[in-house]
Design a protein around this nucleic acid. Structure first.
Lengths: 216, 216
DNA sequence: GTGGAAACATACTCATGGGAATGTTTTTGC
DNA sequence: GCAAAAACATTCCCATGAGTATGTTTCCAC
């Protein structure tokens, strides 16, 4: 399931090259967030790096490939933040709140990446993608589904344990994802904002979301 | 606040012309949903109508103008469905559930329009828009905010009446919108689906969302 | 220290699609 | 019923931006 970086293209190995790739991905995410997937040009991404197109196309075969890598990175951020929480030995409602809070943090901390995903998702790449690219995209969409499944698992556990009252696990999962991902639509980074400020947002949001699912 | 159709351009008046505009808007929404805002070409929109570019550009000055009109239409669908419910003399929690359910229905019934909004929102039009177009966009964004304010009003009423427990009205409003609008990301139209099926989705979703805000 | 490959920059090609210009038909006001 | 304006269709222009080809420089292996 885990798609290793560079699946489309196994040329790059050097340490410096990897670092350059990372920077390109990050610059691309910022540009995608600013101007959208199409309006953001490869030249602009290069400029964001204080560089030129040549550098970008040396590391990536196409703009699509860059987008896919941003997508993958965004998903990895989510998994890294939430996976550890699954092992916690706490009641399902509390675990859900913890997971949702963590997800909220990721949304705010990696905003350009998460925003990029929302901008196109499946609609981008339609037609104008190679067969290989489409396969990678399918894998990423599956990855996203796997991520949502983490929440459904806990929902199911809570339902079985009687700590949660969930009419439809699938629908509840959708609801949770929607409410949390909505963050990227309205959250704006403010320099003076502290971690505590963001934590209040994430925790409060998580509590409201899970609150509607608690068994009373 | 209410922006009348054709604000950008007051040429069109005839009954037939209006009808043609409506069809163009609808075809555009479908195309935008299918291929995204940029990938959807004006030629494709025309083809969706069984027509050509000439027709489209006779009624609209630019592709941007079409997008703005789709946006406005989407918002009108929302207002039309929810505004009447505000006069209902029922407790805030119940009213919220009714509003949320109605909104859910609109999301599913006018999917192409609602999906189009999410595809670009503020990010689309950046730079490549005339001053007039940007002003219209500002109005539409304000309209969207006014819509969310409807929910905040009821939230505040419930808070005051003690029927709701809302730590942050602003945040709760965001949460509700996010959870409901998320519908357009995963909902797929199925021919065999009845109104009752959709109502179960909308009602169940609404109940989960508001459930977390009830005063216990 | 030198050959060669990786890591870029520079300069080009070329398809695409928005929009304008222009022609043709249909409708409508009088 | 006849101008004339609206409602289209057809054709063309041209800016834009993805991708390529070809340099030039930097880095590392040996």
């Amino acid at each position: 399931m885990a798609l290793t970086a560079g699946e489309l293209d196994a040329r790059h190995v050097s340490r410096r090259g990897i670092e350059s790739q990372r920077k390109i991905i990050h610059a691309a995410a910022v540009c995608f967030m600013r101007h959208g997937l199409e309006k953001a040009t490869v030249d602009e991404i290069a400029q964001e790096l204080g560089s030129t197109k040549g550098r970008v196309y040396h590391h990536f075969a196409s703009k699509n490939e860059i987008y896919l890598e941003v997508y993958r990175q965004a998903m990895e951020y989510c998994f890294d933040a939430v996976l550890p929480l699954l092992d916690l030995d706490i009641p399902a409602p509390e675990k859900l709140v913890r997971m949702a809070t963590a997800h909220g943090h990721v949304m705010m901390d990696t905003l350009p990446f998460q925003r990029t995903i929302r901008l196109g998702v499946d609609v981008y790449l339609r037609g104008s993608a190679t067969e290989a690219e489409r396969k990678v995209l399918s894998g990423l969409i599956a990855m996203r589904n796997d991520y949502e499944a983490l929440y459904r698992t806990v929902l199911q556990q809570g339902q079985s344990a009687g700590t949660l009252s969930v009419p439809s696990v699938a629908l509840a999962g959708r609801m949770i994802m929607g409410a949390l991902n909505g963050l990227v639509d309205w959250y704006r980074v403010r320099p003076e904002q502290t971690w505590d400020d963001r934590d209040r947002i994430a925790a409060s949001l998580a509590e409201m979301i899970v609150g509607g699912l608690r068994a009373d």
